[in-house]
């Protein structure tokens, strides 16, 4: 993993965090923005697992567990939020 790439990942995570915060600051977020917040969280988690935890070149079994945890957690949160809209 090159140092330059790690720096780019860090910068992307910082920008994504500020974006999430801005969505929250803008008042009651609309459902589409909530979905966007969860997509941003998925991307952030993906970068942390693949590049900071360095699982990108590890066999699929371990990546599937970690990325599966991330996706399942966010999917169930989205489901709960969607049920709250009805």
């Amino acid at each position: 993993m090159s140092v330059h790439f790690l720096n780019v990942v860090w910068l992307a995570l910082m920008v994504a965090t500020v974006l999430t915060w801005l969505i929250g600051k803008a008042g009651q977020p609309r459902p589409a923005l909530i979905a966007l917040v969860l997509v941003i969280s998925a991307l952030k988690g993906w970068l942390i697992i693949e590049d900071f935890m360095a699982l990108r070149r590890v066999r699929l079994f371990w990546r599937a567990i970690m990325l599966g945890w991330l996706m399942l957690t966010l999917a169930l949160i989205l489901l709960a939020y969607w049920l709250g809209l009805r």
């Binding site: 999430t20 909530i34 917040v37 969280s41 935890m53 966010l74 939020y81």
Partner: peptide
């Protein structure tokens, strides 16, 4: 390092869930 990244990963979900998603 792996443990520290896990602490970060969990907060990545906790922050929007508790602070942002209303």
């Amino acid at each position: 390092a792996a443990y520290w990244h896990m602490v970060d990963l969990v907060w990545i979900i906790l922050f929007p869930l508790v602070y942002v998603m209303r």
